[in-house]
Design a protein around this nucleic acid. Sequence first.
DNA 1: GTCATATTCTTGACTTATTCAAGATTGTGG
DNA 2: CCACAATCTTGAATAAGTCAAGAATATGAC
Lengths: 130, 130
Amino acid sequence: MLREVALRVTRPRVAVLSAVHDHPHADTDAIIGAVRERFGQVSHQAVYDVLHALTDAGLVRRIQPRGSVARYESRVGDNHHHVVCRSCGAIADVDCVVGTAPCLTESDDHGFTIDEAEVIFWGLCPDCST
Amino acid sequence: MLREVALRVTRPRVAVLSAVHDHPHADTDAIIGAVRERFGQVSHQAVYDVLHALTDAGLVRRIQPRGSVARYESRVGDNHHHVVCRSCGAIADVDCVVGTAPCLTESDDHGFTIDEAEVIFWGLCPDCST
DNA sequence: GTCATATTCTTGACTTATTCAAGATTGTGG
DNA sequence: CCACAATCTTGAATAAGTCAAGAATATGAC
């Protein structure tokens, strides 16, 4: 996957990429932890750099609901959306609205050239709603 | 407006509320600046506290596109959405999808109780797209 | 109008997430 | 196998926001 996007294959990159695959919606700190557990010492700066590189390359996607730090997921290219729990912050994927015109077309674009519609649903997860 | 939501009327609160009204989508720093310009010295902590209180009371709405710091607007209650410029960060309101079912109903809610759908459109503003 | 009190504000230190920068290391094409 | 650009390490710095203690003040009761 790294070679496909012309990125050099290094231990930190393999480590971060697999950590993101194994822990969807994990934040940077959790990723650093997972990386070190399985691949030994890697600097936090390297993780930040790698996450940026992977995001720019389109191998991972960065999400950041308000009130949360940056989180990453490896499911890319399908423009799926997210449900976030107001109480505990849990995040789940939502397949909705893909290709459904109403959500991707706004009424007045103010002259903006729009290329993405990001949807975040807010509510309570099953555990917190009891 | 403050009394309606049972908040005491203080100089910092009036100052922040009017600053948010006058500068839609401004970040905390800009609000602090606007507040001090028109109402004299107010501590940054007071501005943070007031913004929290106003947000909790529903008098202002907090938005935070990824990569941006917290921003506030006084247009509340209509669940409108936003277009954000990838290049310069400019934000504009979008009236779309209000009450339009497709956007507020996801395909599989994973058991979540959903009460809000937040939509952010990404693209380039008129100035940056040239 | 005055007073008591809970709320709110000020001050200043602190935390956390993230970035910057310089030099050492390393993956890759030739 | 080599050279070099890309990447990583180390360590310091920044920015946004929070915590905490004491001072000030808006409000309801008298």
